[in-house]
Design a protein around this nucleic acid. Structure first.
Lengths: 108, 108
DNA sequence: ACGACTTGTAAGCTTTGGCTTACATAAGCG
DNA sequence: CGCTTATGTAAGCCAAAGCTTACAAGTCGT
């Protein structure tokens, strides 16, 4: 079970979100990931630490490189948690909002 | 279309996430919301501003009160965006991870 | 053992973020 | 018109976060 607090905090940074997208499909080495950004390599390394602590990425060592890959289970749980905010009322409220929007449009 | 950056940043704070849960079902006045927290009312008011700017809440004025309610459309879009990180590979990777976990368990 | 390569960590700086107190604004009520 | 109620805004403070440079720690090849 992930810590939602650290997960949401990790997702707050745009660089970290881009990192997750990068390694969603396949694993990549730390240096390879860093090369996709303008910031320095240590900065990216720190982002990787944050993402790993949030269990959004998994790390495996291979020779002298470290390979990072997204941890789909955690992201999935974050999505589930976000959806549970609405506890099934999402659809209801959405329809309600659309209805109100329609009424407002029709009034004009 | 919401600004994902401000939305994710808004969700990074635990108090703000609790606020969203509070007003997911029904609208509540600013003071009513603030009474659910230990922090001062102005602090909560600032959180409400952040959430409104991220379009996660909608505000309507009623007399001398302001009523806040979650904006399901934006939350929904954030969820969609998170899921799109995986572009359909979520299930694949999840099964893969579970398979690896099983293998690792069986090895012990 | 040595040198190059890959990566993480420490220290320090600057910006951002959240909190508090004090003040401003605006609506309702007598 | 004052007075109260409901709320937002401004100023200032402190902690957290992100960046950079410098350094440490493994790993591979010769």
């Amino acid at each position: 079970m992930p810590d939602f607090d650290s997960a949401f905090r990790a997702l707050a940074d745009p660089t970290r979100r881009r990192i997750i997208e990068l390694v969603a499909h396949r694993g990549m080495t730390a240096g390879d990931i860093a090369s996709h950004f303008r910031t320095t390599r240590p900065a990216v390394s720190q982002h990787l630490t944050v993402l790993r602590n949030a269990e959004l990425l998994s790390e495996r060592r291979e020779g002298r490189t470290r390979i990072y890959q997204a941890n789909p289970k955690t992201v999935d749980e974050v999505v589930q948690h976000l959806q549970s905010f609405w506890s099934g009322r999402l659809q209801v409220l959405k329809r309600q909002a659309e209805r109100e929007e329609r009424q407002q449009r029709d009034r004009q």
